[in-house]
Nucleic acid binder design. Structure first.
Length: 909
RNA sequence: GCGCGGGUGGCGAAAUGGUAGACGCGCUAGUUUCAGGAGCUAGUGGGGUAAAACCUGUGUGAGUUCGAGUCUCAUCUCGCGCACCA
């Protein structure tokens, strides 16, 4: 039998599907392991070879864990709500559901060819009403909860209502509560709910006709579509993610994620510990206390002015009549600018004097109040004290408007720029004089608190998540408006199904407003839908218990599977999905619906696979193409050529001529009889003709080769270009592997006893494979296989005792070929559940270790020692050897260093 | 500006402080079948030699060590993330 990968692969894929080989059991008493991929958005373009990289890695690990005796949950689904399907619907009028299911079918077909071990019975789709019922359910729970700062967790809103009735809460007394109308009560509670409706400055994208979250905007453009985004005040549904900022930050430490990813989240959460200080202000005789936030109270003696954000509510009351016109004009200017312009103009300084003054609470000094866009309304209190000597932004502002700069650290030079460092001794600072800055910070904080001028405060950059989208293809909100009051739908009405609408074209109003009878008991239903991250925030719970229609996940089932042990996906979700999921999970945990407060214990970011584009060089004004090495001789134009016409950078001339009509009469200037193409690493994309389709690789080389090669390409977490060159090597490996079993189609495996050399090769491999897989170092594991294979082929090894474990070891990587060989070896079960530990236990320890012997660090000879010998025994043996005496040659042995199992170094003098 | 990673052959890359460059690609030579983008064997950091020996070599400079690609400090450089966040 020859290695016919096509038949082998389709045969075993059909077998696995028919026998549900990878069906995860319920609580079977086995230890569980939950391996999850970030589920894909099924786009119309299908998969390219970059997409399965993470899936292959997680599949290898899943199969490895199964061999080790774990009950593995390894599911897959689709993040199926989203903009592209809707935009396609706008263009074509086709229902997004239809596009989506066509794309899903295509994805499934491609995934199946790679031989993944998913339990497809647990497939989920976020656009499926049975699924989004639970997204809506969670929203209702959030609507019905508030964040209790005393307990530091979410509690049912009924508890807050209880407090309000009894003793009042916050600014609201029990009396006021009792007298409040239904609408007023709703407004009060809205300030506390985890899911709440509120006016906020949002990223409005006119091009998409919807609001976007911060992580959906990059450089002032929408991530999807690249349309300009502007700031606009709107009433929107929001999630009180900010209430969880502290916990989201703290529990990062307990997670087994990469440091860089944790750091990204820390930056995004943006904790800063500082002080709120109250400054009294005077505007045309009227006094008004203004609270500012600073991390450097110690610099308060250097304050020479204050600045308000243009959007701050204080602006109106602190503008003098004389400055009113100037201020209004300035604010108008700022509003006109989009976020994009504000970012691109970071170097220009603008601002206007408000006409009023503040009083420095420590010095009693009168200081002017300015308004400038460099102060943000959404952070801190929207007002700052400016210390130009020690803050670069304040410095630039002071320079521009001629405001005084007072240094308060001894000997610092502020003639050219501000002195931002946190070191030195204080001066010009009253009671802080002479203190070291670090000491002064604490002392100043204490002082401000003691005198009642302010208090310590921790601020976070993390904002609440805006949760409404004015779109069609998303989850409808289970909310209706009863006399204008947002009211939750009863749980029994879930799922609230997405209605049909007659046209998807944007009209300025939300698409759902077009739906007929979009009402509940005669009251209008909410017309916006939920954003993309809604469905992906808790999907990993549904895989545990996908068909449960009574609960998100059954308590016992959840207690068994707990949380995701290994999550693999791209780092681009660091500040989106991965924050929202953690928030969502902690919320469910607070209310006791799930048993773990973090969703993903270990997380690996696979790198991107970039494309490797090929170029041909056309001599300008002709239809003649020169090979890359000769292009310097001519004036040429570089043209992307479809990489399918190129093999190992050599162009297939006939295929090239047939590619496009204008090349049909192309002429070539060759080097050494071949046309060599140029190349470059670029993003994998259609327009660069460098997309590699996994289907094509499966056709030419087979899925096993694809899997091995993607892993062999380099470290998993690193980005690397796809380079088809090396794939032959991996394919060769599989062919050779096959030849250990079949020689010219004849079965050659024997039951002979294995020799020591053969055993040694096998044992080395077993050791290496176990270590490397646990560290996700799959490229080196495959190398180890290649070494073992070379050694065994050289020994002409064809013994079952060696080959059977080899098949098991390779099976996570190349499941099809190993399944076929396992069957050929006479097993009637599948290799997936081969008793790995039993096979591996058979491996005996090597008897001897070969030590290199060094003199003063230079290797001279090697010596074989029993593995069990202690360092002292090794030393004694080496000292007494004839060879040693030869190298000592009259010198003294200072000492002998024996590193067990590694090396012997003899230090001479 | 702040933070996080990296810099090793022609290329992708390996090296618990212990023989640097495993493994693969590419290249060179030989060989076998030739229908192959095939198989097999050997070589492949640089210098050096008839062949060895030997010298040198992990961005740069210092340090710790019997011994450093690996640890420490400084420096150059590339990539990524965040950023008027007070």
């Amino acid at each position: 039998m020859e290695y016919d990968f096509k038949n082998i692969e389709s045969k075993w894929q059909a077998y696995w599907a028919a026998h549900k080989t990878f069906k995860a059991e319920g609580n079977s008493g086995k230890p569980k392991y939950y391996v999850l991929d970030m589920f894909p958005y099924p786009s119309g373009a299908g998969l390219h070879v970059g997409h399965p990289l993470g899936y292959i890695a997680s599949d290898i690990f899943s199969r490895y864990k199964r061999l080790k005796g774990f009950n593995v949950l390894h599911p897959m689904g689709y993040d199926a709500f989203g903009l592209p399907a809707e935009q396609y619907a706008i263009q074509t009028g086709q229902h997004p559901e239809k596009t989506t299911s066509i794309n899903i079918a295509r994805y499934r077909e491609q995934l199946d060819r790679i031989g993944f071990s998913y339990d497809w019975d647990r497939e989920i789709r976020t656009c499926d009403p049975d699924f989004y019922k639970w997204t809506q359910w969670a929203f209702l729970k959030m609507f019905d909860s508030w964040y209790d700062p005393d307990a530091d967790k979410a509690r049912p809103i009924s508890e807050l209502v209880g407090k309000l009735e009894k003793e009042g809460y916050g600014d609201v007394t029990a009396e006021q509560w009792a007298k409040a109308s239904e609408k007023e009560k709703s407004d009060i509670l809205m300030q506390y709910r985890i899911a709440y409706q509120g006016e906020t400055s949002v990223n409005w994208c006119e091009g998409l006709g919807t609001v976007l979250a911060n992580d959906e905007v990059k450089d002032g453009l929408s991530v999807r579509g690249g349309f300009p985004v502007e700031q606009k005040k709107m009433t929107q549904w929001q999630l009180r993610v900010s209430a969880y900022a502290g916990r989201l930050l703290d529990s990062l430490d307990s997670l087994n994620w990469t440091e860089s990813l944790k750091e990204m989240q820390r930056n995004w959460i943006g904790k800063s510990e500082g002080t709120e200080v109250v400054f009294n202000t005077v505007c045309e005789g009227k006094e008004l206390p203004v609270t500012i936030f600073t991390t450097r109270v110690d610099t308060i003696f250097g304050v020479t002015f204050m600045v308000l954000a243009p959007e701050s509510e204080l602006v109106a009351s602190l503008t003098s009549s004389g400055q009113k016109k100037a201020v209004e004009e300035y604010i108008k200017e700022v509003r006109k600018k989009t976020e994009r312009e504000r970012i691109s103009e970071t170097k220009t300084v603008s601002g206007v004097f408000s006409g009023s003054y503040g009083i420095n609470p420590l010095t009693g000094e009168k200081i002017p109040i300015w308004i400038s866009e460099y102060v943000l309304a959404g952070y801190g209190t929207g007002a700052i004290m400016a210390v130009p000597a020690h803050d670069s932004r304040d410095y630039a502002f002071a320079r521009k408007f001629g405001l005084p700069i007072v240094p308060i650290i001894e000997g610092c030079d502020v003639s050219e720029s501000s002195f931002d460092a946190k070191e030195g001794k204080m001066c010009n600072s009253g009671f802080l004089n002479g203190l070291d800055v670090k000491v002064a910070i604490e002392k100043a904080k204490d002082y401000v608190e003691e005198k009642g001028l302010g208090r310590r405060k921790t601020n976070y950059r993390l904002r609440d998540a805006i949760f409404s989208r004015q779109r069609y293809w998303g989850e409808p909100f289970p909310i209706y408006y009863k006399d204008g009051i947002p009211t939750p739908l009863p749980e029994s009405e879930l799922p609230l199904r997405l209605p049909e609408i007659d046209s998807y074209k944007p009209t300025g109003e939300a698409p759902l407003a077009r739906a007929k009878d979009w009402t509940y008991k005669g009251y209008p239903l909410e017309t916006s839908t939920m954003p993309g991250f809604a469905g992906s925030s808790a999907y990993y719970f549904r895989y545990m218990d996908p068909r449960n229609d009574k609960a998100l996940v059954d308590k016992e089932v959840n207690a068994y599977w707990k949380s995701v042990d290994l999550y693999i996906g791209g780092s681009e979700h660091a500040t989106g999905h991965l924050i929202y999921s953690r928030f969502w999970n902690k919320f469910l945990y607070d209310l006791g619906y799930v048993c773990e407060d973090e969703p993903f214990r270990k997380l690996i970011n696979q790198g991107m696979i970039q494309g490797r584009s090929n170029f041909v060089y056309r001599i300008v004004g002709t239809n003649k193409f020169v090979s890359c090495g000769l292009k310097g001789k001519y004036d040429t134009t570089e043209i992307h050529v479809d990489i399918n016409l190129v093999h190992n950078d050599k162009l297939d001339l006939e295929a090239f001529k047939a590619w496009r009509p204008e090349f049909s009469d192309a002429e070539f200037e060759l080097e050494n009889g071949e046309y060599i193409c140029g190349w470059a690493v670029e993003k994998m994309s259609k327009s660069m003709y460098n997309v590699v389709n996994p289907d094509d690789i499966c056709d030419t080389y087979g899925a096993d080769t694809l899997r091995l090669y993607e892993m062999f390409l380099g470290p998993l977490e690193q980005s690397k270009p796809w380079d088809t060159k090396g794939i032959d090597g991996v394919n060769r490996f599989l062919k050779k592997f096959w030849r250990l079993f079949y020689d010219r189609g004849e079965w050659i495996v024997t039951d002979e006893k294995a020799g020591p050399e053969e055993l040694k090769s096998l044992h080395k491999l077993i050791k290496k494979e176990q270590e490397d897989i646990e560290n996700f170092s799959f490229n080196t594991t495959i190398s180890a296989f290649m070494i073992a294979l070379n050694e065994l082929s050289a020994l002409n090894c064809c013994k079952r005792e060696i080959l059977e474990p080899l098949v098991i070891l390779l099976s996570p990587f190349a499941p099809h070929i190993t399944e076929e060989l396992w069957y050929a070896l006479g097993h009637d079960d599948t290799v997936t559940y081969a008793r790995f530990p039993e096979f591996i236990a058979a491996y005996a320890a090597e008897d001897n270790v070969t030590y290199p012997v060094q003199f003063n660090g230079k290797m001279r000879f090697t010596v074989d020692m029993p593995k069990s010998a202690t360092p002292a025994e090794v030393e004694a043996a080496v000292r007494g050897m004839e060879q040693t005496q030869k190298y000592v040659d009259g010198l003294n042995i200072v000492k002998v260093i024996v590193v067990p199992g590694r090396i012997i170094n003899i230090v001479l003098k």
